[in-house]
Design a protein around this nucleic acid. Structure first.
Length: 902
RNA sequence: GGGCGGGUAGCUCAGUUGGUUAGAGCGGCUGGUUUACACCCAGUAGGUCGCAGGUUCGAGUCCUGUCUCGCCCACCA
């Protein structure tokens, strides 16, 4: 027997421990089953659990549990990410508190500290994830800095280098002066900010006393100016092109040139060209063969080429240089200006475009990656993200993959000592390094963390080590089935995994065929979750303090409640407005399920429940009544709809379907009506419905379903080992006991429901307590009478009345009309005739309106000739029904008026 | 500047390829401790589906325009 009260916490601890002990989530390579693999998006080791993790991992858990139910060999690979910059910043902060720097302690000690940090804090997030009840194969846990994973990363680098996709070059990169490293374009976020647009006067060399005015937001870079550019078709400056200007401060003559990149209508139409510190300027400089003068150092301070400003921070220098121009009469104008500036998201400072030697990846298999999605080898859910993906791939630029950090995978390149590092002949690229290490220096830099993430689906399955691949079942489990992630990392992660998967698994020589692409893609489906927002629509973040602590929520509502509540508010790929109310509803659902079993168990509990067949065996088809068939029919319909929703990854709809079936039809109707018929067959029907409900709900609410399953004797195996019967299989079982005859019986139940609800409403409308026993009279034709008779006990029970009898004529009582006929309520004493008259008038008017609509339709030639038969018949039926109801109400009204007159 | 998404009941959202009278939960109000459940039951009010056109027998659904909110991308210094 189950406990009276549902207390989630006990169940959670008990079952998760048992599941893990039994290895029920561990992968099994079984060739007779199709595989279903999911790789977790590795959370940061520096992270703590937030609502996004709960959503994301619950969805994965639902998918993987469903896969098991459908007889797939499921494998969910967990793991974590080393979080390069983010962890390095944390360790540096700890050092700073002790007055130390990473350079001070040296690389080796620093890495030791980082490792310790990770060991201390890195598993917190995993322990938190486990609380969610997620069914990963923990024996396959991977970490991006594990030795074998690291070898995979280096192998990928070497392979891509050998295939000509990786090169080293001097390029303008996004430099973060705070963390002192280059960043990829994707790591730079544009922010609007209030700046000042300065108009600076440059004296023309050939025309002393005449000035060219240039607008800039960055006066501190003038010392790096190498030209002034104007648009070739700009009439104002045509005569000046070819002449020169005096560069102020570090005085030098620089040319005035013409370039199409200059916008005529911005500022004065003249641009100062600083190739070392601006992307547009760099391009102009390249086109015109201009020199490159860097004036800002890696720490964001002005270097010694800046004369009096050397050593000054870039922002201070900006003000000071502007001041200098003002004092020297070179500042023509100064105006407030709103512009966009790139920021390093992690470090929170504005990035500096800077010329620097870095390693780059020219993306391989860009076209193939597009084809994979276009052809549906990889499906995006929702589909619209394909556009974002395609657009990025269409405008793709090489990826700066080197980082000037220590925490990460050190670049597997060695340079010959004393050799020129820019000359590839002095390079050695391999996983293990050169045989004579004493003659070489390894590159100091590490790889972008996203580079290691880009091979996640390959590396967790052992690639490229053949033995490891065999152990992990690479050939069996790859490609993976579902990837669940946020659309914000389409570029960072999803697209890169697709490109690298296709390239690295291919031979790298000939163009891969569509078949090969299909085999080499890392996943078949990508489900993009929404972003969780608070009830004001703001992104949930620690700094805003608007995010509930997920652990508190789990505590308060139980894991199952949070899971199902959160998914029920997650519309397909739309952002999610978080509501604690919905989470609470999730818990209520679990409680209700619990209580429905209590009802079942308060009655006789005997009977074999160990299989669907055994339960069906207990059903005596001669005892079955309309209500039984109706609930079984609803179950079939709900299952069918549920399957459709799940196939489309519409989890909120799927939950809604189960919820409505369970709550409205099963609990509110079937349990109630079956209370009058407590026989073995009815309890077998309960057992059947409850069993299927547990299976259907299990992926969403694994703990409470597991508990109830075992408690009610459905089996001794874990639900993770049970298969879910398909709708067709269930239909098969029910056909065996006469399913085919049930349609008309289900229709009867609907008619009785209509009647019961109408009469309840009638009672409420007259302010009668729902407990009050009232006499009802029922007026109808013989056929309907027979139906009512068959459900007589239910009608009386549900209306809480002892008296429900026939009448041949209209009565002077409050009345309502339903499809089966009209009902009069004997209020005996206190009848407000005027109120009843008003009510009837309103209802008659409403019916008249509906009748008019349908009559108009049915008199329309075009409607009759063009609408499908079903629709026309529907309109006819409705018309007939409404006319009948109206007639009944008119009779009731007439009777009422007659009584009033006498 | 380009792209994407949303605008349906007080709130959060459903609404399949156009087809019966636009739904659910929450909240509001009314009545109820009927031996599974007050984390419950019964009932009820509340909507010109952002706006304007168009296509159609029929539009929340399709087309055009428009307003508005949000997100992403883009080298106006």
């Amino acid at each position: 027997m189950i406990e009276d009260a549902y207390s989630p916490r006990d169940l959670e601890q008990k079952w998760y421990a048992r599941w893990l002990e039994s290895d029920v989530f561990n992968r099994k390579i079984s060739p007779d089953q199709p595989p279903h693999t999911i790789v977790i998006p590795p959370p940061n080791v520096t992270g703590i659990l937030h609502m996004g993790h709960i959503l994301n991992n619950t969805i994965q858990d639902v998918l993987i549990r469903r896969a098991r139910q459908k007889n797939r060999s499921a494998f969910w690979v967990p793991g974590t990410d080393h979080a390069g910059i983010s962890l390095q910043i944390k360790v540096e902060k700890e050092l700073a508190e002790k007055g130390k720097t990473r350079q001070g302690v040296g690389r080796e000690t620093f890495l030791e500290l980082a490792k310790n940090w990770r060991e201390k804090h890195g598993n917190i997030i995993l322990e938190q994830l486990k609380k969610l009840g997620i069914s990963c194969d923990w024996s396959a846990l991977k970490y991006t800095l594990d030795p074998d994973y690291s070898r995979s990363v280096l192998a990928a680098f070497v392979k891509l280098y050998q295939r000509g996709y990786i090169y080293r070059g001097l390029r303008l990169v996004n430099w973060c002066p705070a963390s002192m490293t280059a960043l990829s374009d994707e790591e730079v976020i544009m922010r609007e900010q209030h700046a000042i647009l300065y108009s600076i006067k440059y004296e023309i060399v050939e025309k002393p006393g005449e000035f060219l005015i240039v607008a800039t937001t960055r006066p501190e870079t003038v010392m790096g100016d190498v030209a002034i550019a104007v648009h070739p078709e700009d009439e104002r400056y045509r005569d000046l092109v070819g002449l020169h200007c005096w560069r102020p401060i570090v005085r030098e003559s620089i040319p005035i040139i013409a370039d199409e990149a200059v916008l005529k209508d911005f500022g004065t139409g003249a641009l100062k060209v600083t190739p070392a510190h601006d992307a547009v300027d760099f391009a102009i400089g390249q086109r015109h063969g201009l020199p490159i003068i860097s004036v800002i150092a890696k720490d964001g301070k002005l270097n010694d080429l800046t004369g009096p400003f050397a050593g000054m921070d870039r922002f201070e220098a900006r003000r000071k240089v502007a001041e200098y121009f003002f004092k020297n009469g070179l500042l023509a104008k100064e105006e407030p200006y709103l512009n966009r500036v790139g920021y390093s998201e992690r470090a929170g400072v504005s990035i500096e475009p800077m010329l620097s030697e870095q390693w780059f990846l020219r993306y391989p298999c860009v076209e193939e990656a597009k084809l994979a999605v276009r052809e549906g080898f990889v499906c995006f859910w929702p589909k619209r993200w394909e556009k974002t993906y395609m657009h990025w791939l269409d405008n793709i630029a090489d990826w700066c993959i080197s980082r000037q950090l220590w925490w990460g995978h050190r670049i597997p390149v060695w340079y010959r000592k004393e050799g020129d590092r820019r000359d590839p002949r002095n390079w050695h690229v391999s996983i293990g390094g050169p045989k004579d290490p004493e003659n070489w220096d390894q590159d100091e830099d590490v790889l972008d963390t996203w580079f290691s993430s880009a091979i996640w689906p390959l590396a967790v399955l052992g690639w490229p080590d053949e033995k490891a691949m065999e152990t992990m079942g690479f050939d069996y489990f790859y490609p993976t089935e579902d990837l669940v992630t946020g659309p914000d990392i389409i570029f960072f992660w999803v697209a890169r995994m697709i490109m690298l998967g296709i390239n690295l698994l291919g031979d790298g020589e000939k163009v891969p065929s569509p078949k090969e692409i299909q085999r080499h893609i890392p996943f078949r489906n990508v489900y993009f979750t929404g972003i969780i927002r608070d009830n004001l629509g703001r992104k949930m973040s620690k700094s805003l303090g608007n995010s509930p602590d997920p652990l508190d929520l789990l505590d308060k509502y139980g894991v199952d409640g949070v899971r199902v509540g959160l998914l029920s508010m997650a519309p397909n790929g739309q952002d999610i407005l978080f509501s604690e109310e919905r989470v609470s509803q999730g818990k209520k659902l679990c409680t209700k399920l619990w209580n429905s079993f209590r009802f079942r168990q308060k009655n006789a509990t005997e009977g074999d429940r160990t299989s669907l067949a055994a339960i069906v065996e207990r059903i005596d088809e001669n005892v079955l009544e309309a209500d039984d068939w109706a609930i079984l029919g609803k179950l079939l319909a709900a299952m069918e709809e549920f399957e459709g929703a799940m196939k489309a990854y519409e989890f909120n709809r799927a939950i809604q379907i189960l919820y409505t079936f369970f709550w409205s039809y099963y609990c509110d109707w079937y349990i109630e009506v079956s209370k009058a018929r407590r026989n073995a067959t009815v309890f077998a029907v309960h057992d059947l419905v409850l069993r299927q409900l547990l299976l259907l709900f299990h992926p969403f609410i694994p703990f409470v379903t597991e508990e109830l399953w075992h408690d009610h004797g459905y089996g001794t195996r874990f639900l993770a080992e049970e298969r879910l019967e398909t709708t067709e299989q269930l239909r098969g079982y029910l056909s065996g006991i006469g399913l085919e005859n049930m349609q008309s019986l289900i229709g009867e139940v609907e008619l009785i429901r209509e009647l019961v609800m109408a009469v309840r409403a009638l009672k409420a409308q007259f302010g009668l307590s729902s407990r009050r026993d009232v006499k009802f009279y029922f007026k109808t034709d013989p056929a309907a009478r027979a139906i009512v008779n068959r459900h007589y006990h239910n009608v009386k029970y549900l209306l809480l009345t002892q008296f429900f009898s026939e009448t041949e004529a209209a009565l002077p009582f409050p009345a309502c009309a339903v499809t089966l006929g009209s009902i009069y309520m004997d209020t005996a004493d206190s009848l407000d005739v005027a109120a009843q008259e008003r009510r009837l008038q309103i209802e008659i008017e409403e019916l008249s309106r509906l009748i008019a609509i349908n009559e108009k339709k049915l008199h329309n030639e075009h409607f009759l000739s063009r609408a499908p038969n079903g629709v026309i018949q529907g309109a006819r039926d409705l018309l007939t029904e409404n006319i009948a109801k109206k007639r009944e109400l008119e009779a009731a009204l007439l009777k009422l008026l007659t009584v009033r007159q006498t």
